[in-house]
């Protein structure tokens, strides 16, 4: 096999299909959207080259930066929520009764499509007939808020289902990583007299640090480009109070018929995500490799 792998032709054949697909479906459209960003284009009639005007407008566009701030908030909250998922996984992985069943229950939201989740939570949040407000009213709140209509609340109300949606995914990753830690290490720690908490914080978490770093990057990048639930549940409204970068881009391109500007925003979204990813990678980089 080593012999085969040293042949450049073989390497090319292995790599080429994936490279072509990624190139045609991802990198070329990326560059194209950067190029369309230089145009004044309504998506239908002829394009007109206007240089960097769209990008300059975007940088001065208050609404764009508001939506970027909302995306960053989402990134922050999803990163914080990872702590909770980690705690749950540590408990699940420590052979408690029914951990198998619980793991499957946590995974269920991941199996639902985003639109189904959105419809479900629209019903939960309904101001007069919704589950949430019905519960609040029976326990004594007279005037519970209209969750998806109040500009000051709507963003955080939508964060709940977004975080809930991905809980199972991260719990699954952490669970698998934790299960990978050799039992002998835990055994040794126990013999040395370590408490369960010490085992969790001093042994388990450090040992899966590489996985934790990966999930942080996943959570942040996923949040910055997040779109689905926002689009279905509020469409970015009321008046931009729950707009994120991706939904703003969509609105410009498809509702305002401004594909040029929409593409420019899309390209900026890419750049912002790229910069943040690089920063995170740098900030969490370590030289030592973990060896069991």
């Amino acid at each position: 096999m080593n012999k085969v792998m040293s042949n450049k032709w073989v390497i090319t054949i292995y790599i080429l299909p994936a490279l072509l697909l990624v190139g045609v479906l991802i990198f070329i459209p990326l560059l194209l959207s950067g190029y369309y960003g230089l145009m004044d284009w309504n998506g239908i009639s002829a394009m007109e080259f206007i240089g960097l005007e769209n990008y300059i407008t975007a940088i001065q566009d208050v609404k764009f930066w508001e939506s970027a701030w909302h995306s960053l908030l989402l990134a922050l909250f999803s990163t914080l929520s990872l702590v909770g998922y980690l705690a749950i996984s540590v408990i699940l992985a420590s052979r408690i009764k029914g951990s198998d069943l619980l793991r499957k229950i946590y995974l269920v939201p991941m199996l639902l499509s985003s639109v189904a989740i959105a419809q479900l939570w629209i019903k939960v949040f309904n101001p007069t007939n919704g589950m949430l407000n019905s519960v609040l009213m029976t326990i004594g709140f007279e005037n519970p808020p209209a969750w998806l209509a109040e500009p000051s609340i709507v963003l955080f109300a939508i964060f709940v289902p977004i975080l809930w949606q991905y809980a199972g995914f991260y719990i699954l990753i952490y669970y698998a990583a934790l299960k990978n830690i050799p039992e002998t290490i835990i055994e040794a720690a126990r013999i040395d007299g370590a408490t369960p908490l010490q085992i969790a914080f001093r042994i388990k978490v450090p040992l899966i640090m590489t996985v934790i770093k990966v999930t942080i990057v996943l959570a942040i990048v996923g949040s910055l480009k997040y779109f689905d639930l926002i689009y279905v549940m509020t469409g970015g409204g009321p008046n931009g109070a729950s707009e994120v970068m991706a939904s703003y881009m969509y609105k410009l391109a498809f509702s305002s018929n401004d594909f040029g500007y929409g593409s420019a925003i899309g390209f900026l979204l890419l750049i912002i995500t790229l910069i943040v990813t690089i920063i995170i990678r740098k900030a969490t980089a370590t030289k030592e490799e973990i060896q069991y």
């Binding site: 629209i122 949040f125 309904n126 101001p127 007069t128 007939n129 209209a146 969750w147 998806l148 209509a149 109040e150 709507v154 509020t234 409204g237 009321p238």
Partner: peptide, 16 residues
């Protein structure tokens, strides 16, 4: 208008 109208879709209003 009904409570939370800015967060309700037309379909939801119609069903009310």
């Amino acid at each position: 208008f009904v409570k939370g109208f800015n967060g309700l879709s037309d379909e939801e209003a119609k069903s009310m």
